[in-house]
Computed example of a mutant assay.
Amino acid sequence: MDLKKGKLVEGVVTKVENNGLTIQLPNNLIGFLAKENMHISKKKKLTDVFSLGYVIKANILLKKENHYTLTQKKENIIDSVEDNPQKNFNIKSEQNKATKKQKNKDKKISSDKVGKKLQSKENIVELKKYKKQTEKNNIDKENTPKVTTLTDLKKLKNIGNLKISVKKNNAKVAVKQPKEEKNKIILDIPDDFVENIVKDLEIKTKNFNKLVSRVKERGLLDEN
């Protein structure tokens, strides 16, 4: 597992020397923290300050073959970046690209604003022209006398008692006469009118039954 540069790690001191500390890092990794990379006076001895098992924090500075070089000074991390010309060049080129991109974006925004302003002015001029033309057309319509056409007459079929008959080259107007109602004659019905009909029906029914009986007696009617 590789630890990235600048990462803060915590480890246990396994060896104390005059020039630095050997530290056991997580995942069985080894780190070395030099005295010059620590915030400690040069006159002080590390053996007087640290002992085995002491827990200490530091940042990854470099990766070597069998261990990591550690530091507690942040300026060492920044200096190591500046010492790498290729990496520094890449950072500057990325910054230049970002600056150019922002400038192009600003130019595009400004040009879009100018274009919108010009477009809005053109729209206002066109709108004024359209309003003037519309007002002129309305005035011309009001001043033009209305002429009655054949289509207008066809729409009018009846006006009161007048009936309008319109043909292609001729138009006639006739007076619509109201229809006269015919005199209806209502006859008087006698009081025993219904009773007489019922009696007459009963008499005819009896006569019919007598006739049927005579025919049966003579054997002229088959009942089946």
Rank of each mutant, 00 (worst) to 15 (best):
K105C: 00
A98S: 08
K44N: 04
V13C: 03
N59P: 02
E75D: 11
K44I: 05
D79T: 13
N76F: 03
I56W: 02
K35D: 11
N18K: 09
V55W: 02
N66Q: 07
Q86M: 12
G20W: 00
A34K: 06
N76P: 03
A34N: 09
I60R: 03
K108T: 09
D79K: 15
K108G: 01
K57M: 05
T69H: 02
S41R: 12
P26D: 10
I60S: 00
D83C: 01
E82D: 10
N37Y: 05
K107V: 13
T71Q: 04
K63N: 11
T22R: 01
V55Y: 04
D79V: 10
D48A: 15
N66A: 03
I56C: 06
N90C: 12
K100M: 06
I60A: 03
N90K: 13
V55F: 02
L25Q: 00
A98K: 10
I56K: 01
Q72D: 03
K35G: 14
T14V: 12
K74R: 05
T22D: 01
G53L: 08
G53Q: 06
A58V: 11
P26H: 09
A34L: 09
I60F: 05
S110Q: 15
N28H: 13
K44G: 00
S80D: 14
K45G: 13
N27A: 12
G31K: 07
N66D: 09
I60K: 01
V13M: 07
F50H: 06
G20C: 03
M38T: 05
D83W: 12
K92V: 09
K103I: 04
K105V: 00
G53E: 10
E17L: 05
K92P: 07
I23N: 03
V81N: 11
L46C: 09
I23W: 00
H67P: 00
Q95M: 14
K64Q: 10
N28W: 08
Q24R: 03
K107C: 00
N90F: 11
T99I: 08
E75F: 15
D83V: 07
S41D: 15
I77D: 03
K87E: 15
N84L: 02
N84K: 09
T22K: 02
I78N: 02
G31I: 02
D48V: 11
Y54C: 04
